[in-house]
């Protein structure tokens, strides 16, 4: 899922500073699960902003609403009235949600309340880790199901580099060396010989390097007449 975290409160206050009526829009999907932008966080943020603005001598009308998914038009359409009444929309969805609101509501000023961080999973309660870089050309079949693009600090395809020590990356002891993990897993699966092959340079066109990406599925598109 998409992992995000709330921006510093001061930054959020500055972003909504010009507005009187603020609508905090939460998202009920990824950011709810990572406790960054769900209904509860929307309510906490709205209450905090109401109190802070009041103490600041400029009481703002801050309300909150949460949709199931900010990244789909259908859900955004259900809150059209609230969005249109607001001077500013503070989205605490991921960056996709912020842009979806901007696209769906061309006249609305929308600002982000979160920093969208990465694609990952909760390793344990309260801890999220990156797992995928969305490079568009998955190589997990070559690396025992551990992604060096997302998890090696240098995105090496022929790792590990000389900075691998005691299982962690030279960048930071908190980072497990992805190539040590790959090595260990290939070894336990009896497929270490896969590491002896030289992997050629990656084609980054499928990644962001090919420009913004798009997928079209003709079989799923609705016919023109409908």
């Amino acid at each position: 899922m998409i992992i995000a975290e709330q921006k510093p409160f001061e930054e959020i206050k500055n972003l909504i500073e010009p507005a009187q009526r603020v609508l905090v829009v939460g998202c009920g999907t990824c950011v709810t699960v990572c406790f960054a932008g769900g209904a509860r966080e929307a309510a906490i943020l709205a209450a905090s902003l109401r109190m802070a603005s009041k103490l600041n001598g400029d009481p703002k009308e801050v309300t909150d609403v949460t949709v199931q998914r900010q990244c789909e038009w259908e859900y955004l359409d259900t809150i059209a009235e609230q969005i249109n009444e607001a001077d500013i929309v503070l989205s605490i969805g991921c960056g996709i949600g912020v842009q979806a609101i901007a696209e769906r509501y061309p006249k609305t000023w929308v600002v982000p309340g979160l920093n969208t961080a990465f694609l990952g999973l909760p390793a344990e309660q309260g801890v999220w880790v990156e797992r995928c870089a969305a490079c568009g050309d998955c190589i997990l079949g070559l690396t025992a199901g551990i992604c060096p693009i997302a998890r090696c600090s240098k995105s090496l395809l022929n790792g590990p580099c000389g900075g691998s020590q005691d299982g962690h990356c030279e960048v930071n002891e908190e980072i497990p060396c992805a190539w040590q993990l790959i090595y260990d897993r290939l070894q336990s699966l009896g497929k270490l010989e896969m590491l002896y092959e030289i992997r050629p340079p990656k084609n980054w066109r499928t990644s962001r390097d090919g420009g913004p990406r798009k997928i079209v599925r003709p079989d799923l598109r609705l016919s023109e007449e409908e």
Binding site: S153, S155, L156, N158, C161, E170, I198, R199, P201
Partner: peptide, 24 residues
């Protein structure tokens, strides 16, 4: 060489490249 990671240096805010690795 692959190169030391930029976080060690004096421009840790830099975007790294690592388009290819040392073997490539």
């Amino acid at each position: 060489l692959t190169g030391d990671h930029q976080t060690f240096g004096n421009h840790p805010q830099a975007k790294n490249v690592f388009d290819i690795d040392s073997i490539q």
